[in-house]
Amino acid sequence: MKKHTISALVENHFGVLASVAGLFSSRGFNIKSLSVGETEDPSISRMTIVAKGDDRILEQVMKQLNRLVDVIKVIDMTVQDYVDRELLLIKVSTSKAARSEIMEIVHVFRSRIVDISPSTMTVEVTGTEAKINAIIGMLRPFGIKEIARTGKVALLREVKG
């Protein structure tokens, strides 16, 4: 079972998200992550969907997506060269003693501390899924209180030469 990153340009109106989600759910397909936002054209949104499944089923889902009137274009990023990023907010328990160690990790991961309290620190991280998973792994021993992840956003690379 391969993980696929699907990018869909869709009409920016109500009901579209439900139709897209419905295509996945009616086939018993779990969406790993989904992010939606406006594009350079405010009448168009981009959905970035990460889903796991065998190639045949995913091909079918892509075709079904294409069939939706409100879906303008669908790309399977996975078979092409693309850049992707995810945003993570993570709230970690800290004691006074642990703070500097956490700050060191934050520094190594080129991330930022965006909130601090006597007993917690909240860290903002952007990066690939692997990087996000890595910093979560590093911070786990301190005690993770809460996590919010955006899910992946992705764009194809401009192919040159």
Binding site: F14, G15, A18, S19, G22, S26, L68, V69, D70
Partner: peptide, 10 residues
């Protein structure tokens, strides 16, 4: 009717 129409409108 979303899964049983080709398209629908409100």
């Amino acid at each position: 009717t979303r899964p049983i129409t080709k398209h629908n409108y409100l």
